[in-house]
Design a binder for these strands. Sequence first.
DNA 1: CGTCCCCTTGAGCAGAATCAAGCCTAGTGG
DNA 2: CCACTAGGCTTGATTCTGCTCAAGGGGACG
Lengths: 255, 255
Amino acid sequence: MAERDSAAAAKHRLTAPWCFSCPLRTCADFEEFSEAELAFMANFKVEHGRAWAGEVIYQQGAARPRLFTLFSGWAARFRTLHSGERQLLAFVLPGDFVGLETVLAQSPHHSIEALTDITFCGFDPDRLNELMSRPDMAARVAWYQVLDQRHVERRMTAIGACDGRRAMADLMLDLYLRLGRRALLRGLSFSLPVTHQQLGDALGLTTVHVHRTLRGMRQEGILTLKDRRLIIHDLDRLREAACITNEESRARPLL
Amino acid sequence: MAERDSAAAAKHRLTAPWCFSCPLRTCADFEEFSEAELAFMANFKVEHGRAWAGEVIYQQGAARPRLFTLFSGWAARFRTLHSGERQLLAFVLPGDFVGLETVLAQSPHHSIEALTDITFCGFDPDRLNELMSRPDMAARVAWYQVLDQRHVERRMTAIGACDGRRAMADLMLDLYLRLGRRALLRGLSFSLPVTHQQLGDALGLTTVHVHRTLRGMRQEGILTLKDRRLIIHDLDRLREAACITNEESRARPLL
DNA sequence: CGTCCCCTTGAGCAGAATCAAGCCTAGTGG
DNA sequence: CCACTAGGCTTGATTCTGCTCAAGGGGACG
């Protein structure tokens, strides 16, 4: 129930080898790993990096490959159009694995930016083929990719087939469920370190409309977003307002 | 330049083993396969199936796994909400590989429907692990997944960050480029066997607005959609109107 | 020949964008 | 310690994109 904080992150950085003791592994959301698999991942890991809020980890079109699992904090994956518009593709939460595209393609089609100060487990991009040579790990990567794709398709459906209110409700419910599976909730409330601008970029709305939508839901007694923290007052009504309610069943891999 | 037609499909069905002679492999778009890889895929294949326009190949939430590469015709991948709205996630074109999710997850998060009569190479879902045990094939699957995800994210960006006109232009350009890489164009024109309703579901617009958007672009001399066929009059202006212009560089795998 | 589906068009309406301005808070520098 | 600034939130007024409702036309098929 307690939120992961910088103290936990600091503790983690002093423990070696990290992968074995990674506190994220204790979350029910993640698949079990065998000793051998853990040993492999520990060896695959090359850094425990950190970045500050606002920092761009890698950029759409840039060359340098980068492969990591977010350990603490929030990040965002987004695309920028030449005309200046920006579409936020996904919020990256602790436990999310990012950057496969940067290794397999010459250059990624999206950028990643830290929304808060973050720490992450960096892997060696040059050794990805070793990872993919192990059938067990290749299967995990494939499953992870399927989950990731599902998630993007869920968000796309919310944007394309629903109005702003429903899309907003769906995003909030989505975040609530994802954070819950990672034990990052405090009851019905969680830290949402995101500006209205960024929410708008995620939903295809303007900041003005994001505000009005949130105000509407607050007045209806569904939820409140205040001081970078979301409080859900009525989970049932939120579920009702969202366009998608069913969730994942199988655990996801933690790489 | 010539379009693939039912005659080619019929001829293909009589040739054995199919995979070696698959006419799709001649397209520049697809990665080279070694003899050994081809032999493996030929063995992996279990049927050369067909379905009629309107048929649902598999359904969101259904259990039966299904793994195939579309050989001829068009299909669509979509999600349906309980409230009835439908979001078209992608148009499936010849050469596209579909159904990994149906094998890895208990049930898929989307449905697939044939938009025209189609034929496809069906693979044995129970033997997917054999495929993933081969590092070469696992890498191809991962690369394919990355491309697929990119594609969905491109469409999502068009829907979320652009107005109807730009989203429409982007979709048409996208189809033009994808079909071109598979040699399914006739100059600046191609078969687009899709209703306004389906275009609307893909773009998050109503049929009425799809029509007005297309009429606008016709009057501007950019393109004409008539009798299930799209004719591009001015590719440069279409590119200008679309939100994304850069394309894939590396070849995609054909499974 | 009727029916169904799809395309087409018009009129009116609503959700969301734009424009513009005021407020609050945190951070900066004098 | 206070003045100044900048970024983000809040609100109102106005405009416009895209939706809803409604109706007519054309082609395919039984």
